[in-house]
Amino acid sequence: MPDKPRADLSAFASALRRRGIAPPVADRLALEMADHLDDVVDELIAAGESERAARDRALARLGEPETLAASCCAYSELKVWWKRYPRVAAFVYPLMYVVALPAAPVLAGIAHRALVARWTACLFASGVVTSTLFWLLTVVVSPG
């Protein structure tokens, strides 16, 4: 038996994420809502409706993705932590930036250590050459 077309509930999942629902929860809610929709469609078909009419009616019964997502947001434990504790996030995030800013060049250096080593070797070599030239110049030009 061919698979029935499933309702695209990506708009619902996106609306949930925009409202701060954690992405894995949003994806599972959308999946369960699609299962639910299939059950409603099956029930309406069993009651005598055509598949098309049943699907349209089931979708209409479910409501607009934004409205449905809004009603799903009553449980704060389903949200990402910075939406659950916005005051803590307002303190933690700037602090993280203060720590991350000086660490950023160090971490970038570690990530590109081969390039940094090459540049360091070049700078060292040019320093040695320049010092040698200065030394030679001092020896040649000195009156004694």
Binding site: V25, M33, H36, T67, C72
Partner: peptide, 13 residues
């Protein structure tokens, strides 16, 4: 649906 599924998720959490 907008009550049942989030309530189930919250209870599971």
């Amino acid at each position: 649906e907008g009550v049942v599924y989030p309530a189930l998720h919250a209870l599971e959490r």
